[in-house]
Simulated scan of single mutants.
Amino acid sequence: MPSITTYYGISGPVPFVDVDVAGDNLLFIDPHAIRISGGPEPYVRDAATCMDTFFSEVTNCVLRGDDDAYRHGLKLLQRFQEPWETRHGMAAVGFRGHGGAESVGTLIWQTLLGDVEALVRIGALCQIEQLPMFVEGIDRDITSDITTRIIYGPLMQFTAEMLDTFPQFTAGLHRAESFERQVWDHHARRWTTVHGRLPIAHGRPLLLVPRGWSRRNLLMSARRYYGTTVLSFVQFEQAVLTSDGRRLKTPKAVLRKRPDLKPVRQTNIFQTLHAFDDKQDLIAAFEQFVDERLNDTTEDNTAA
């Protein structure tokens, strides 16, 4: 199937992810990758603002704790219609595969009020990219869909710039049309609708994604957090100090088999809270670990 550049006859490097226009690609928009991508401006700044204000609005509803706040928080999370225009993700395991936007939003809200509420209240869980580390059922596919919907406004604006930059999008039989889409208004902190022009590819609107914003695996996944930072914390805390001053640590392969360190996300929650009691921020340590190793991985590729 043709990529965007092949379909439109665009040559040379392009500032957007060159996906197959005919179907889903095994790429996922990664909120942390957006945050540290370095550009393009103003889109990366606007996308980060959308992500932060949305998640802040939701978690503030948890912290307020009254019925009106609970209704508002749940309603905010139930507005994630599947954003198929990017051609990212896998439709079979996206919103359709999880019972729709309402079910996904309800799952996240119930977890925020249950298993991870303590993380919200101490300020540990404060960014959208941290959700898959702690919420069962939220992985790269759902994270990508949620993030896309929250940053849909900046993506539409980026696509509009690309339409002006590359005349091939509307040359010959190619065309762009105006669409009304739901976007997050980070000023008013509410969902709203706007009109914007999108190119048409294979009879369907196409939303362009800046390079560096999508990957095959999330930078901040549950298993990566568990296998690096969480198990390292357990190793250090439970190490035995020998008479000659050495620390004997249990191998991670052994720790992975222990019943008290399963399942992964429940262990992540418990050990993260336990570490905070000891004045250690495992989430910040993990983020530093991820950022330091980003340059050792290839863009839009594997970073398990």
Rank of each mutant, 00 (worst) to 15 (best):
S3F: 13
T6H: 15
Y8K: 06
I10Q: 01
I10K: 03
G12L: 05
G12T: 07
P13D: 02
V19G: 04
V19M: 03
A22H: 15
D24A: 15
D24V: 10
D24N: 14
N25T: 07
L26H: 14
L27A: 09
F28I: 12
I29K: 08
S37R: 00
G39S: 12
P40Q: 05
P40H: 12
V44E: 07
A48F: 08
M51V: 04
M51F: 06
D52Q: 06
T59V: 15
C61A: 14
D66Y: 06
D67L: 15
D68L: 11
Y70L: 13
Y70H: 15
R71Y: 09
R79G: 08
F80M: 09
P83F: 07
W84S: 14
E85D: 08
T86H: 05
G89Q: 06
M90F: 15
V93E: 04
F95T: 12
G105R: 07
T106K: 13
L107H: 11
L107G: 02
Q110W: 11
Q110G: 13
L112F: 04
L112S: 08
L113W: 11
G114R: 11
D115K: 07
V116I: 09
V116M: 02
V116P: 04
A124Q: 13
C126I: 10
I128E: 00
I128C: 09
E129K: 09
P132H: 00
V135C: 06
E136K: 13
G137W: 12
T147G: 07
T148W: 02
R149T: 10
I150P: 01
I151A: 03
G153D: 03
F158G: 02
E161T: 13
D164Y: 09
D164V: 08
P167K: 10
P167T: 03
T170N: 01
H174Y: 01
H174P: 01
A176R: 12
E180D: 05
V183D: 03
D185M: 08
H187I: 09
T192C: 06
H195S: 15
P199C: 07
P199I: 05
V209R: 00
R211S: 14
G212K: 01
R215F: 10
R215S: 13
R216N: 08
N217F: 11
L219Y: 13
M220P: 00
S221K: 02
R224Q: 06
Y225H: 09
Y225V: 05
G227F: 10
T228P: 06
T229H: 07
L231K: 07
D244R: 14
D244Q: 12
D244Y: 02
G245A: 01
R246S: 11
R247A: 11
R247C: 10
K249R: 10
V254T: 14
P259M: 14
P259R: 14
D260K: 10
P263I: 04
Q266W: 11
I269V: 15
F270P: 00
D277T: 12
D278H: 14
Q280H: 10
D281G: 08
A285F: 01
F289Q: 02
E292T: 15
E292M: 08
D296S: 08
D296W: 04
T297H: 13
D300A: 14
D300N: 13
N301W: 12
N301Q: 14
